[in-house]
């Protein structure tokens, strides 16, 4: 059984149809990439999977369990974590604290326990800090732990966001344009990091515009255009698909003439 299954997902905003009956599966241990021109509905699909919006129609299943209609924090508890296209860190907190929020699900201390600083809470806090530091270490930002998250460069913020998402120990990690705004070197490092994450057994689903990155690391590619799935398959197959070529060539023509 696939880890994530989307069945006939449809989303309308007013009169606009953002997704028109999209179905796909993400198999365990894979990196799946969603590509497509702007406005194809990629981010909308992400928002539906993680529960930020309820689809107009259709069902999403995680591990066979229907997750449509659940709140994002409920879906997060089922092992789905994500990053955001525009990087949504908590700017008024330190880098370490950001990752600690990612560890939230793995703590138990409640309001009263926290206020009284009970011994169990102190132990838990200490352990959480150690674990969070390890995730920061993994993305190579350990020395920035005490810096304010708002003051980092875009590339570093993307990495903090990745560490925060990993902090939840997800089974499925959604990455929304993880390479946008990164330079070539940073993108290369990102590719290595993502492979390492996959090899640890975390399934990845990502939206990405950087074709060389997608072709390089994706095991499976889903192509959307105007809310409709036009192709799906391994990189080599998608690359030679006439429909995909038409969409991307068409876009290039528009860019050239506009």
């Amino acid at each position: 059984m696939a880890l994530l299954e989307a069945e006939n997902v449809r989303q309308c905003f007013g009169g606009l149809v953002a997704l028109n009956g999209v179905s796909f599966e993400v198999r365990r241990g894979q990196i799946m990439a969603i590509i497509g021109p702007n406005g194809a509905g990629k981010t909308t699909l992400f928002n539906i999977v993680c529960g930020l919006i309820n689809p107009t129609d259709g069902v999403v299943r995680m591990d066979g369990k229907v997750i449509t209609g659940l709140k994002p924090f409920q879906i997060a508890a089922l092992g789905v974590s994500r990053t955001f296209q525009n990087v949504s860190l908590f700017p008024h907190m330190t880098v370490l604290e950001n990752v600690l929020v990612g560890r939230h699900l793995h703590g138990r201390a409640g309001l009263i326990g926290c206020a009284l600083r009970l011994p169990t809470q102190r132990r838990e806090e200490k352990a959480m800090v150690e674990q969070a530091s390890r995730f920061l270490e993994e993305v190579g930002l350990a020395e920035k732990a005490q810096h304010s998250a708002g003051g980092l460069s875009l590339g570093q913020r993307r990495l903090v966001e990745l560490a925060r998402a990993l902090g939840t120990e997800p089974r499925l990690l959604l990455l929304d344009e993880p390479a946008s705004g990164l330079n070539t070197k940073e993108t290369d490092n990102l590719a290595k990091t993502l492979r390492r994450i996959r090899d640890r057994g975390i399934t990845l689903l990502m939206v990405e515009h950087d074709m060389s990155l997608v072709m390089d690391i994706a095991d499976e590619i889903l192509v959307l255009d105007f809310g409709v799935k036009i192709a799906e398959g391994p990189p080599a197959q998608v690359r030679s698909d006439p429909k995909v070529i038409a969409v991307y060539l068409g876009e290039k023509e528009n860019v050239a003439s506009g």
Binding site: C50, G51, L52, K71, P72, F73, A76, A77, S81, R82, F84, S88, L89, F90, V101, G102, H104, L105, R164, A165, G167, T168
Partner: peptide, 9 residues
């Protein structure tokens, strides 16, 4: 949104 996506109820 981000807090909720990280599992904060």
């Amino acid at each position: 949104a981000a807090a909720s996506a990280m599992g904060v109820n």
